[in-house]
Design a protein around this nucleic acid. Structure first.
Ligand SMILES: [Mn+2]
Ligand SMILES: [Mn+2]
Ligand SMILES: [Mn+2]
Ligand SMILES: [Mn+2]
Lengths: 220, 220
DNA sequence: ATATTTTGTTAGAATGTTCTAACTTTATAC
DNA sequence: GTATAAAGTTAGAACATTCTAACAAAATAT
């Protein structure tokens, strides 16, 4: 098996690759808070192990082996987060750091049991899909809230970042997954949005916040 | 904080110290399956960190700091085992290896939540006491079954070893914690015991098994 | 009491993960 | 298109954890 360390690199490559299909050393370095030369040498190791393709001075790409490996770690992470929220009573803002550690536990039985107790969930507490046992993940393509138009009515489906701070901010505004949001206006200058949901008639969100909120249009 | 590795050493020292108040390098080496020179150099490190006292060619002893540190890891281990059995439906023979990993998770909240959900348990699924938040452990002094006499009636309180194999053996004999056992006879030659419990009237246990079973006399 | 065995230590090396400093290649700006 | 900046690489070192080989001390056996 792979080490804790290798698993964290694979996961970071996977996440950065989601958009462009590739990840570069500089971004990995920032994301993992590890200096570039260290990342560089780990890229060599992961390439030797067949998890990634790495040509000099080019971004790295996951092989199908690497992609599966990463997805299975993400599966363990997200099942854990779901378990912590649904079965242990943690808030969605409290589970990421714990899951970051438990995702490295080597015990298929442990995660199979979580999965079973949770009723084989498809999404985690942040709205992200949970890969299946083969590492296949179904990505529903949501829109970012900041790309919507004034007058749109949408449903809050997922967040793109799960830092404590951001989730606590949403908690403080009572803005939870599943909430129906009406966009009242958008400030052209800085992208600030005024929205309405539940009993809150004039809530204001900065563009930074809107970029991290994923929504689906309401079908009528 | 300390590394995963240091924590495993501390735990091993604690367990070996239980009987004699000290642990020697050779036994640690066998227990951890790590060669003596490696253990020796780790002893220097742990001594520098103030967890143990180590004079050359003498057994090591935990300082009170080291003892507390070790007890708090054991607390996490045993709470985890209890959680796995009581809240997730694992058998007592399936939980040790998972707990061996989860005991290293750094999250006071996580273990506090387990503790709360379990109702602040005092013993783990193998009958061992769970240290409190200050690392204090109340050891009830049970007897080993092999030290009892023919005719004694005793209650099965704990096991001294929790390997899969041993626990599966007990499962196969339907011999669970809490069972009341009557000792029918003891073979003087090899210490084999014939015992009676529940519907089993003539069960035979080797001395090796009897040494690993802790019991309390029945009060009448 | 001496020889043998067991236990403990030292020295030197290997592997894994990380760093800083120096250099090279690629991208961006003017 | 050249200058500057950003991204990527190489080299060399540090620290943690482990090993084997050789040696030393303590315990045990005869
Ligand atoms: Mn997460
Ligand atoms: Mn992690
Ligand atoms: Mn255990
Ligand atoms: Mn452990």
């Amino acid at each position: 098996m792979n080490t804790h360390t290798e698993e964290n690199y694979l996961k970071a490559i996977y996440n950065l690759s989601r958009v462009k299909g590739e990840a570069n050393v500089n971004e990995l370095s920032k994301q993992l808070d590890i200096k570039m030369p260290t990342v560089n040498s780990m890229m060599k190791k992961l390439a030797e192990k067949g998890f990634i393709i790495h040509e000099s001075y080019k971004p790295v790409r996951l092989t199908s082996k690497g992609e599966k490996e990463a997805a299975l770690i993400i599966r363990k992470h997200r099942l854990t987060e779901m378990f912590l929220v649904e079965k242990m009573g943690f808030g969605w803002d409290e589970v990421h750091n714990i899951a970051e550690q438990i995702e490295h536990v080597q015990s298929p039985d442990f995660f199979a049991k979580m999965d079973q107790l949770l009723g084989y969930p498809k999404i985690d507490p942040h709205g992200s899909p949970i890969p299946d046992k083969n590492g296949k993940m179904e990505w529903v393509e949501y829109h970012k809230l900041n790309e919507c138009k004034a007058g749109d009515i949408v449903n809050f489906k997922a967040v793109t970042h799960s830092s404590d701070d951001f989730l606590k901010f949403l908690n403080s505004r009572e803005l939870l997954l599943g909430t129906t949001i009406k966009i009242l206006s958008i400030e052209a200058f800085d992208g600030t949005m005024t929205i309405e949901y539940n009993k809150r008639k004039h809530e204001i969100l900065s563009q930074l916040v809107c970029e991290r909120i994923l929504v689906a249009p309401i079908k009528k």
